[in-house]
């Protein structure tokens, strides 16, 4: 995911703050629609589509990530049709209940919001997002915590994978993990983690660490960055106020 951020499109070079703010505005606008919104969400797809296309990101990869991610929203949504059975819309002979509409609405919200969040990282990289947070005056200890956490995430995930693999090679029935084994595995992982923390601390001290993390930030904001935020925000508000698909459809029906 992070490696996508190594790209070199104009979007990658954009001030991460601009992308962060626009993404947040996008998400808030999307979730501000009522629960039976379906059609009005369609224009919003232009934002992720634009980011993927202009940023030269692998669309399939992003899509896969979105679909794989947390079935939670879908699980929650799936019984809206079950509870809410009032007919709301008719398409030809088919009666569509309010539940189905709100279910589709949840799915669309889900796709839009998750894609937007993932694209933010894919276009900026986690470190740049953190840099943006610093510039936006998010408290330093929290940003430093994010950076350290992210740095050692991979190291520890790999370590826990190794331990789990080692356990599996010596376990001859599938998937079973006794409580004792579980606690021991987690406990050892924790011990190693505490040791590692001490070693890192030493490494930091040997290079003059005095309690403050200094990072030389080089992000600059120009006219392009400002206009990115402004143009998209206006567009989102426009999409929020006017239901483009319906207006467009009515216009076409009138013409023909």
């Amino acid at each position: 995911m992070d490696s996508l951020a190594g790209g070199n499109s104009p979007l990658h070079r954009l001030d991460p703050r601009a992308k962060l703010i626009t993404t947040l505005f996008f998400i808030v606008t999307v979730v501000s629609f009522g629960k039976y919104t379906v059609l009005a969400f369609i224009p919003f797809f232009i934002y992720p589509v634009y980011l993927i296309s202009a940023g030269g990101l692998p669309a399939k990869f992003i899509l896969k990530k979105v679909l794989l991610v947390s079935p939670f929203a879908i699980l929650l949504g799936i019984f809206n049709p079950v509870i809410d059975r009032e007919t709301m819309v008719h398409i030809g002979e088919i009666c569509v209940s309010g539940g189905w509409i709100s279910f589709v609405s949840i799915i669309l919200r889900f796709i839009l919001t998750v894609t937007a969040a993932l694209l933010l990282v894919a276009l900026s990289g986690f470190n740049a997002v953190c840099e943006a947070l610093t510039k936006l005056r998010v408290p330093r200890p929290f940003v430093v915590q994010l950076l350290f956490f992210y740095r050692y995430l991979f190291v520890l995930a790999e370590e826990s994978n190794r331990m789990e693999r080692a356990r599996k090679t010596r376990t001859f029935h599938r998937g079973a993990m006794g409580f004792r084994a579980f606690v021991s595995l987690i406990g050892h992982l924790l011990l190693r983690t505490l040791d590692r923390s001490e070693r890192i601390y030493r490494a930091m001290c040997s290079r003059g660490f005095d309690g403050h993390i200094r990072v030389s930030t080089a992000i600059k904001s120009g006219i392009i960055d400002h206009s990115f935020v402004v143009v998209w925000s206006i567009l989102f508000i426009f999409f929020r106020v006017y239901n483009i698909p319906v207006e467009l459809g009515e216009f076409i029906m009138e013409v023909f």
Binding site: L147, Y150, R199, I200, R207, R214, S216
Partner: peptide, 28 residues
């Protein structure tokens, strides 16, 4: 004294290589 640790992962704790190498000088 410049100390090179056995496990490089413990020594390289900053987000990028540049930040990591710059860590010491910035602290100075």
């Amino acid at each position: 004294v410049g100390m090179v640790f056995q496990n490089s992962d413990d020594q390289l704790f900053m987000p990028t290589v540049f930040d990591d190498v710059a860590f010491g000088p910035l602290n100075m």
